[in-house]
Amino acid sequence: MTGSLRVALLGSSNFPIAEPYAGGMEAHIGQLSRALTERGHSVTLFAAEGSSLDVADDLLSVARLELSDISKADITTPALAVSEHHAYLSVMMQLAGELSDTFDVIHNHSLHYLPIAMSRTVRTPMLTTLHTPPFAWLESAVALSGSTGVEFAAVSEHAARQWFPVTGPVNVVANGISLERWPEGQGGDGAVWSGRLVPEKGPHLAIDAARAAGFSLTLAGPASNTAYFEAEVAPRLGGDVTYAGHLRQRELATLVGTSAVALATPVWEEPYGLVVAEALACGTPVAAFDRGGIPEILDPTSGRLARPDSVEDLARAMIEARTLSRHDARARAESACSERRMVDQYLSLYESMMSGAAL
Rank of each mutant, 00 (worst) to 15 (best):
T2L: 12
G3Q: 08
L5D: 05
L5E: 05
L5F: 13
R6V: 07
R6N: 13
A8F: 13
S13H: 04
P16R: 00
E19Y: 14
Y21H: 05
G23H: 07
E26M: 01
L32F: 11
S33Y: 09
A35Y: 08
A35G: 03
T37Y: 09
G40M: 07
L45S: 01
E49D: 11
D58R: 13
R64T: 13
L65T: 10
E66W: 11
S68W: 14
S71Y: 14
A73N: 12
A81E: 15
S83P: 00
E84K: 15
H85C: 12
H85P: 00
Y88R: 01
S90M: 10
Q94Y: 10
A96F: 10
G97A: 11
F103P: 05
H107K: 02
N108Q: 08
H109R: 02
P115M: 11
A117T: 05
M118S: 12
S119A: 15
V122H: 09
R123L: 06
T124Q: 11
T124W: 09
V142E: 05
V142I: 15
G146A: 15
E151C: 09
A153D: 03
V155M: 01
R161G: 00
P165F: 12
P165G: 02
V166Y: 12
V166S: 08
T167R: 04
G168A: 06
V172A: 01
G176R: 00
G176Y: 05
R181G: 04
Q186Y: 13
V198A: 11
K201R: 08
G202K: 07
G202E: 09
D208V: 07
A209C: 07
A210R: 03
R211S: 03
R211Y: 10
R211F: 09
A213D: 03
A213L: 08
G214K: 01
F215H: 05
F215C: 03
T218A: 14
A220T: 13
T226A: 14
A227Q: 13
E230P: 00
V233Y: 12
V233S: 04
P235W: 13
R236A: 14
G239I: 02
R250C: 04
A253G: 03
A260E: 07
A262R: 02
A264C: 13
T265P: 02
E269Q: 11
E269S: 08
G273V: 06
G273S: 03
L274T: 09
V275R: 06
V276Q: 01
A281H: 11
A281E: 05
A287N: 08
A288H: 04
R291Q: 11
E296I: 10
I297T: 06
D299H: 06
P300Q: 09
R304D: 00
R304I: 12
L305P: 00
R307M: 10
D309N: 12
E312R: 15
D313Q: 11
D313V: 12
A317H: 04
I319R: 15
R322A: 10
R322C: 10
R330D: 03
R332Q: 09
R341W: 07
V343E: 01
L347C: 06
L347M: 02
Y350L: 07
E351D: 13
E351A: 07
